[in-house]
Structures are given as C-alpha cells and as structure tokens.
Amino acid sequence: MKVIFLKDVKGMGKKGEIKNVADGYANNFLFKQGLAIEATPANLKALE
C-alpha cells in the first residue's frame, strides 16, 4: 500500500515521502499512530 509519511519514522521514511509499505503495517501502526496517510489521488494532490 502506498502511504504518505506525516512524520519521520525511523527506518521507514521521512515526512512528506511516498513509499510502499505492507498493508498490515500501514493499517495497524502508521495510520493508528497518525504517522502516515494513504496515498490516494486526493491526498497526493493536497501534498503538492
């Protein structure tokens, strides 16, 4: 799943980066902790 990092995550990515991560990792950790959001077309447009 493609995500946009909202904060730096050690060993994974930096704020503003777009990366592919495992679905479970994104849903169970990154999204719940507020560290990333899904890289949807609307979210990608908002990032620009």
Rank of each mutant, 00 (worst) to 15 (best):
M1C: 12
M1W: 06
K2N: 14
K2G: 04
K2D: 09
K2P: 07
V3F: 00
V3H: 00
V3C: 02
V3Q: 00
I4F: 03
I4R: 02
I4A: 02
I4Q: 02
F5C: 02
F5R: 00
L6G: 01
K7V: 11
K7N: 08
K7D: 09
D8W: 05
D8A: 05
D8G: 04
K10M: 14
K10S: 12
G11D: 09
G11E: 06
G11T: 03
G11R: 05
M12N: 05
M12K: 08
M12P: 00
G13Q: 01
G13T: 00
G13C: 06
G13S: 03
G13D: 00
K14M: 09
K15E: 07
K15D: 01
G16P: 00
G16H: 08
E17K: 02
E17M: 07
I18P: 00
I18W: 03
I18L: 07
I18R: 02
K19H: 09
K19F: 07
K19Q: 08
N20W: 15
N20S: 14
N20K: 12
V21T: 02
V21N: 00
V21G: 01
V21M: 07
A22P: 12
A22S: 14
A22T: 14
D23Y: 15
D23A: 15
G24S: 12
G24K: 12
G24T: 14
G24V: 12
Y25I: 15
A26L: 09
A26M: 08
A26V: 07
A26D: 07
A26Y: 12
N27M: 13
N27D: 10
N27T: 12
N27H: 12
N28A: 12
N28V: 06
N28Y: 09
N28Q: 10
N28G: 13
F29H: 14
L30V: 01
F31S: 03
F31E: 06
F31K: 08
F31Y: 06
F31T: 06
K32F: 10
K32Y: 09
K32H: 11
Q33L: 14
Q33M: 15
Q33N: 14
Q33R: 12
G34W: 04
G34Q: 09
G34P: 00
G34T: 02
G34A: 07
G34H: 10
L35M: 06
A36C: 05
A36Q: 00
A36K: 00
A36T: 02
A36W: 02
I37S: 03
I37V: 13
I37T: 06
E38Q: 09
A39N: 02
A39I: 03
T40E: 03
T40A: 04
P41Y: 09
A42W: 01
A42R: 10
A42K: 09
A42T: 08
L44R: 06
L44M: 11
L44I: 15
K45A: 15
K45E: 13
A46M: 15
A46H: 13
A46I: 14
A46E: 12
A46G: 11
L47P: 04
L47W: 15
E48G: 11
E48P: 06
E48A: 13
